[in-house]
Design a protein around this nucleic acid. Sequence first.
DNA 1: ATTGTTCATAGACGTGATCTATAGCTCCTG
DNA 2: CAGGAGCTATAGATCACGTCTATGAACAAT
Lengths: 292, 292
Amino acid sequence: MNNNYELYKVFYWAAKTGSLTQAAKALYITQPSVSHAIKQLEDNFGITLFYRNPKGVSLTQEGAVLYSYIEQSQILITLAEEKMAALKNLDSGELRIGGSDSLFKHYILPYLEEYHRKYPGVRLHLNHGTTPEVISFLKEGRIDLGVVRMPITDPQLEVKESLELQDCFVAGPRYAELKDVPLSLTKLQQYPIILFSRNSRARMAITELFQSYGHTLKPEIEVGSVDLLIELARKGLGISYVTREFVSKELEAGSLFEIKLDVQLPPSQVGIMTMRSMPLSSAAVRFMELIV
Amino acid sequence: MNNNYELYKVFYWAAKTGSLTQAAKALYITQPSVSHAIKQLEDNFGITLFYRNPKGVSLTQEGAVLYSYIEQSQILITLAEEKMAALKNLDSGELRIGGSDSLFKHYILPYLEEYHRKYPGVRLHLNHGTTPEVISFLKEGRIDLGVVRMPITDPQLEVKESLELQDCFVAGPRYAELKDVPLSLTKLQQYPIILFSRNSRARMAITELFQSYGHTLKPEIEVGSVDLLIELARKGLGISYVTREFVSKELEAGSLFEIKLDVQLPPSQVGIMTMRSMPLSSAAVRFMELIV
DNA sequence: ATTGTTCATAGACGTGATCTATAGCTCCTG
DNA sequence: CAGGAGCTATAGATCACGTCTATGAACAAT
């Protein structure tokens, strides 16, 4: 009694339509094939499933019992196929992105809006965390892709550089005297420096830079949010180290200005990380296409 | 996207075991076959269903969605197959018999007891009614077989004669003077006759017999139950026309005696009716075997 | 009678599921 | 570090079996 499950599909349609001929049409096969399939089922079970009437077929007692199970089963399969089709053309599904709040706000957000407009059926999840946390999320399968600062060296990860950012020091009107005057690192350190407190890539990069010039960077203030970093600089509490692209509005408006240095600050790359071994969901693939 | 449902069986086992190799073993096919089947599903959907890990496979997001549907579907099919096996070897199912109460009580009952002992899983239904009613039940598919008096001439019905009965007149001690004295029909009619009231085969037969001898049978009392027929005769209220085999106990005990007639009363046949066009359920087939 | 249904059966055909063999990969172990 | 033991993927050959066409048989309706 090892039935090919395909036979149940035939049985389902035969029972549902009450006609082997109709079932054949629904399944795009010929009537003898249906006849044969039903016969197989009946032989395998050793039970007659249909009465053969002059104008079709009808279920026997036992056939009706079988149908009560098979009907549900077939409906589930149909639903499954519809669901998969929906997932494929992104009428449903979900996209889970990991990264820092600032990147979300200033880089990812416009793409997310566009994505959501195109695929309103896809549920969006944002998980913020530090770069190592985001990598963990990825490896645990909790997110589809991560948006972080380079460099990432993990061999398990596929990283695609997608955006170049330039970090810089900015200050508010209070320090107007520094405007347009190239500053040395030594001079800079005489002012209160405001840095991002968390162990971020950007923080590490600037610390290393100072060290390579023989300086030690000691921030006056440390904050946990990029927005706060900007706010504090505007209010004149010090000089903030921020990503230039994230303060473009303030720079244009004049509420902040960039401090020129006599050394070149290295640009930083933003990369999109994915797990090398894990195939991307369609939802994620489309987002990647969008962002490039 | 027109998947062979057999593929879902493979998918189910692959997902369930987390290993194509294990799935292959469960399905008694080879690992490449499983590999191939999964690939087909993935190609047809255009969606990757499994992550290929070094020690097996695991479901992707989309694969997990599919699994949630397919798992239910497959469980239903498994249940269906178990149910059908149970129906086949009569661990479940039902047997529905139509007939008269007297035949149930005096003829069918012992077979029903034996049947129930052999197949306790089969639910038994008895539907009593007159012969035409039983025939209707059969044609409406409300019973599997009918037990009735012959003759039955309906061409749609298959009838198997299974028992010969002899109807006779019986009386109680009150009429002891009639014992062992052959009686003519004319004489008989001088006594109060008790007949079954309903339009039964037995009643029709005896009425016809009287007519063939130029008499008209006018019962003093009519009752609707064979038991009452017997009871009234015992109490001396008249002479009952009953089936000899159904009063064998009373005849032996002496509470009733048979009245000899100078004419031969024709025997009557009991037949088991089934619908010619409808295959019998296994439960019914077994019962037929038992009763023959 | 005749025509149009229905399902069943027989036999031929060809696809496609399954097989064997093998490669590539990771992990574990001596 | 080499070798073994897992795992899955791929290629190519084979043949079972699902599907087809053609036909029959039974029944209903015109």
